[in-house]
Amino acid sequence: MDWSAINPAFYVASVMVAATPLLLAAIGELVVEKTGVLNLGVEGMMIIGAVCGFITAVETGSPSLGFVGGALGGAALSVVFAVLTQFFLTSQVPTGLALTLFGLGASAMVGQSYVGIVPPKMPQLMSGADLNAFERIVLGHDAMLYIGLAIPVAVWAVLRFSRLGLILRAVGEDHNAAHALGYKVMWIRFGAIVFGGACAGLGGAYLSLVRVPQWTEGMTTGAGWIALALVVFASWRPLLIILGAYIFGGIAILQLNLQAAGSTIPVEYLSMSPYVITIFVLVLLSALHKYGISRAQAPAMLGRSFHASN
């Protein structure tokens, strides 16, 4: 095969774009899980975000408003999950799965008349064919990509240094204790879930407005599930989400590059490599945890419903 055909600057820039939807959805889910809630509906919220963002951008002509629309759409769907799990105390796993089923159907219904339309283009800081490697990788993107990188940093700072972060973590580690201290566990979780929905919506909108850009039914094709995996992959550490998303996106783009450059590795092994490598990393991480080299950080209350009994 011809390694010289793969241009590293192009490659890195593509990886950054491919990783952004995953990164956005994953950081939202991380916050949700930090408060002890497992929302398996990321795929559904992403696709609703993709369609709402697309429609808003097409109707208003503004891709930036499109992202607002995407975030609102994702957040709106997550409210359903929040109401069901927090007030109706439903099990989180099936509620999340139902959310995905509903989101896939509803998005296809809403988006019917938007198939085949070209959305307004999100401007890039610098564009053109003659950028050098630095410009292409660091400056050759749209604003949302940078925001996507900023959110995990902000989440990290909030969780680590602020009082809000402390409360969020307290709710996820021991909801009874948090309740006893006077925190409104349900509403804190409600807020976190809606934040997660908005982030997933942004991720979906990035898919339909920048990465592809177009609207097609079911266009997330499993990105929401990958985002869920990334949270564990990153052991609930916000900054590692960026790394995880880039590794995952990197492998997915690499396999296409290898094929195009004439690699003789069978396609199916290349296609399954992102998943297999994710498993290897998970195994590696858990081995590190087991032998005390690093700490596992799964929130203790993950997946458990809370009901104040008094």
């Binding site: 898919l207 592809v212 266009m219 094709t221 396609v267």
Partner: peptide, 27 residues
């Protein structure tokens, strides 16, 4: 000819990435 087998009929993200890759490799 540079050929990418996508193993899908319909996956816009993957198709877009494949097109991008091919263009970046000079197509």
């Amino acid at each position: 000819f540079n050929i990418i087998w996508a193993f899908t009929w319909e996956d816009p993200a993957k198709e877009a990435d494949a097109a991008k890759t091919l263009i970046e490799q000079g197509a």
